[in-house]
Amino acid sequence: TELRLDINGREIKVDGADKETLKELLKLAEKNNDEKAIRIIRHLLER
Rank of each mutant, 00 (worst) to 15 (best):
L45R: 01
E20D: 10
I38Q: 07
E35D: 09
T1V: 07
A17H: 08
K13P: 06
L26Q: 02
L5C: 06
K13S: 12
K31R: 11
K27H: 12
E30A: 10
T1H: 12
R10H: 13
E46T: 14
N8T: 03
I12W: 15
R39K: 07
K13E: 10
I7Y: 05
H43G: 08
I41L: 14
K23C: 05
I38H: 03
K19M: 11
K36Q: 09
L25R: 00
N32T: 13
G16A: 15
L5T: 04
R42T: 09
R39Q: 10
N33M: 09
N33E: 07
A17E: 12
E24S: 13
E35Q: 12
K13H: 11
E24W: 15
T21S: 10
D15R: 05
K23D: 04
E35K: 08
E11Q: 08
H43I: 13
E46S: 14
E30K: 13
N33A: 08
K19S: 08
D34L: 06
I38V: 10
L22W: 02
R42Q: 07
E24M: 15
L3A: 07
E24T: 13
R39W: 14
L5E: 07
L44Q: 05
D15F: 08
E30T: 10
I38E: 04
D6P: 03
N32R: 04
A29I: 02
L28N: 03
I40R: 04
K36N: 12
D18E: 04
K36P: 10
K36E: 10
L45V: 02
T1L: 10
I7E: 03
L45Y: 02
R42D: 01
L26D: 00
L3F: 05
L5G: 04
R4Q: 14
I38F: 07
I7Q: 02
R39C: 07
D18I: 03
A17V: 06
K19N: 07
E46D: 10
R4S: 13
K31T: 08
I12F: 15
R10A: 12
K31Y: 10
T1K: 06
E30D: 06
L22C: 01
E46G: 14
I12M: 06
L22M: 05
G16T: 14
R39L: 13
E11C: 10
T21R: 11
A37S: 06
T21H: 08
G16M: 14
G9S: 01
L5W: 02
E20H: 08
I41W: 01
H43K: 11
E11G: 03
I38Y: 11
I12D: 02
A29N: 00
D6K: 14
N8E: 05
D34I: 04
R47D: 10
L25G: 01
E35I: 12
K13L: 14
D6Q: 15
N8I: 03
E35G: 07
D6S: 15
L25D: 00
D18K: 04
L3W: 04
K36I: 10
L22S: 00
L45Q: 02
E20A: 09
L3I: 15
L22N: 00
G16L: 13
E46H: 14
I40V: 09
I40M: 10
R47T: 12
K27E: 08
E24V: 13
L45I: 06
K23Y: 14
N8W: 04
I7W: 06
I40L: 11
D15E: 06
